[in-house]
Design a protein around this nucleic acid. Structure first.
Length: 273
DNA sequence: AGTGCGGCCTGTCCGC
DNA sequence: TGCGGACAGGCCGCAC
């Protein structure tokens, strides 16, 4: 399930293959993603050149010389660099074929992802315009989180997964960051001190950076541009480890459900706020 | 305005 | 061996 490290891994992988390359053909086999793929996508993109591949939150942004593609990988999406002549497989919904035979191939079995066109600055697109700061930016600080948490009674885990507060922190890394900080996931956001938020910020930056360095986390779906999995799952302390001993103190890791999502924590290491 | 939840999807796993 | 149901969850959009 692609979170920020997996999207960044994908960006790092595809950029050198497609930047400054000319799009020869676009093939859309299934338009039924989270939002319909634009009907005129081929007309818009064919013959154009990819100028740059950037990332904002979990969105990949392909700047063409006449507009922008906005891509979200959803839950099960992946982008791979293949040869155009290579036979597409089930769930390979979109091909962007380049001069020279390389192809950017979008696969998404569950179709929670999207591919949209933005004529103007994609950062102004309604989906992106009101997003919170990037977690690895310097402006994302304990002071900022503390300010935003004033009057918020929601659990801290829900708080840091809110894309309007900070982007890119999904379920896996929220669980891991809270473990590293010693915060129970249900602690109300407004009760956490600025100092404790400072530690939480450091944990978020640390876990995201290390996950990027490891090529992301692969639980079932995620593969990089070459079809290879990430390795950070080996470093997970709590996610998916319900019933297993805490790597720090040996206490049995427990889980609970909040907002229809699994939360994992060590009852001893994460004893409150 | 803040909060919580339904819905979108398919593959995998589990119990019968 | 087949089948139904639970589960996985990012995130919009809606209801309260």
């Amino acid at each position: 399930m692609p979170e920020l490290p997996e999207v960044e891994t994908t960006r790092n992988g595809i950029a050198p293959h497609i930047e400054q390359q000319r799009i020869e053909q676009v093939v859309v086999r299934d338009t039924r993603l989270r939002w319909p793929v634009p009907e005129d996508l081929a007309h818009l993109a064919q013959g154009r050149t990819v100028l740059a591949v950037t990332r904002r939150a979990k969105y990949l942004l392909l700047a063409l010389d006449n507009g922008n593609l906005i891509i979200h990988l959803g839950m099960s999406g992946s982008l791979r660099i293949t040869q155009t002549k290579q036979q597409p497989e089930k769930h390979d919904h979109i091909d962007i074929a380049f001069a020279g035979g390389k192809c950017l191939r979008f696969r998404d079995p569950r179709r929670f992802g999207c591919l949209l066109w933005s004529q103007q600055n994609p950062l102004m697109h309604p989906l992106l315009a009101s997003l919170g700061p990037e977690p690895l930016d310097d402006c994302f600080s304990g002071e900022y989180l503390h300010l935003r948490a004033q009057g918020r009674s929601i659990p801290v885990k829900t708080f840091i997964m809110d894309q309007h507060i900070v982007v890119g922190v999904g379920n896996i890394y929220a669980n891991e960051a809270l473990f590293l900080t010693g915060l129970h996931p249900l602690v109300p956001a407004k009760t956490i001190s600025r100092e404790h938020f400072g530690q939480l910020i450091a944990a978020i930056k640390s876990v995201l950076s290390r996950a990027i360095a490891q090529g992301g986390t692969t639980l079932r779906d995620f593969v990089n541009e070459a079809g290879k999995p990430g390795y950070f799952q080996q470093a997970l302390n709590v996610y998916g480890r319900s019933g297993q001993p805490c790597k720090r103190c040996g206490t049995t890791i427990r889980s609970l459900r909040m907002n229809q999502r699994a939360s994992f924590f060590c009852p001893l290491c994460q004893n409150g706020g």
